Simulated scan of single mutants.
Amino acid sequence: MCGRFALTASPDQIRALFQYEQQPNFPPRTNVSPTEPIAMVASDRGTRSFRLVRWGFIPSWVKDTKAFPLLINARGETLATKPAFRNAIRRRRCIVPADAFYEWKREGEGRAAHKQPYLIRRRDGRTMGLAGLWETYVSPDGGEIDTALIVTTGANGAMAAIHDRMPVILKPEQFDLWLDCANEDPGPALQLVRPCADDVIEMEPCDPRLPQPERRAAPAPRPSSPELPPREPVSASRKAGVGDAQGSLF
């Protein structure tokens, strides 16, 4: 599950890491929520492009979006078999930039039990590229909306202390393989669906007021929480991963 994340790197830093041609301008956000616009990087015949899309995947064949569940994540193990994802894993893979994500852990016993949110990020402070899928949904009245989700995998040893799932975190040298949909064979890309090494990430508890994501219905968009910044900023060259083949915050 990945139901909240942060993206605080500057547009120039994100562009340097993902190497797309557009020069978009977007604000830093520390609490990106489902149904809100998120940044996405895709590829068309080898040329990377930036888009803002709705976080909440809608397959093209859906007729009634109100009756369809909110898909913010997809289990990597089922991408090639579930009807909702079969076309997208072959033709519409993307990368979602993020600086950190949040997960909740039950702590305490009895009446003292509570859900404690944790902020999870790369130990080296760099921005990460999360594996994703996207789709353009066309409504019955002809309107179009680009939607996306984040692909998850089993937790690594470090993450397992909090949750049994985690986002698929791609290395920069893996970006091209994940984005390459030219031959519509998802097999090589699916080999990237695995947890990162334990020492790549670090975790720390954060403000317990962070709202948990809704799992069944689409929640109303929530504003970012300015009281939840991901730690101290790192230098622009380090955060963007410039000059380092491993670049990415996770």
Rank of each mutant, 00 (worst) to 15 (best):
A6N: 14
A6M: 14
A9F: 07
A9L: 11
A9P: 15
S10I: 08
P11C: 11
D12S: 12
Q13S: 15
Q13M: 14
R15K: 13
R15H: 02
Q19V: 04
Y20K: 05
Q23C: 02
P24W: 03
P24N: 06
P24H: 04
N25R: 13
F26L: 07
P27F: 08
P34H: 12
P34Q: 13
E36C: 15
A39R: 12
D44S: 09
R45T: 11
S49W: 07
V53E: 04
W55S: 06
I58C: 04
S60C: 02
D64I: 01
K66S: 02
L70T: 03
A74C: 02
R75A: 06
R75Q: 12
G76M: 03
G76W: 03
G76S: 05
E77Q: 05
L79V: 09
A84L: 06
I89D: 05
R91F: 01
R93W: 03
I95W: 00
P97N: 04
A98T: 06
D99C: 04
D99V: 03
A100N: 04
F101K: 01
K105V: 04
G110T: 06
R111Q: 14
H114A: 06
K115H: 04
K115Y: 03
K115E: 00
Q116I: 00
P117D: 01
P117N: 01
L119E: 02
I120R: 00
G129I: 00
E135P: 05
E135Y: 04
T136C: 10
G142Y: 06
G143S: 15
G143R: 15
E144S: 15
E144N: 14
T153R: 11
G154T: 15
A155L: 08
A155N: 10
N156K: 09
M159D: 09
R165M: 09
R165W: 11
P167R: 10
P167Q: 12
V168E: 07
V168C: 10
I169W: 09
E173C: 13
E173F: 14
Q174H: 14
D176N: 13
D176E: 12
D176A: 10
L177G: 10
W178A: 08
L179D: 07
A182H: 10
E184L: 03
L192I: 02
A197W: 02
D199I: 06
V200N: 09
V200S: 08
I201G: 14
E202F: 10
D207T: 14
D207P: 15
P208W: 08
R209I: 05
L210V: 15
P213V: 09
A218F: 03
P221Q: 04
L228E: 04
L228I: 13
L228Q: 03
P229D: 03
P230S: 02
P230C: 03
R231H: 08
E232L: 12
P233N: 04
R238A: 13
A240T: 13
G241T: 12
V242Y: 07
L249P: 14
L249W: 12
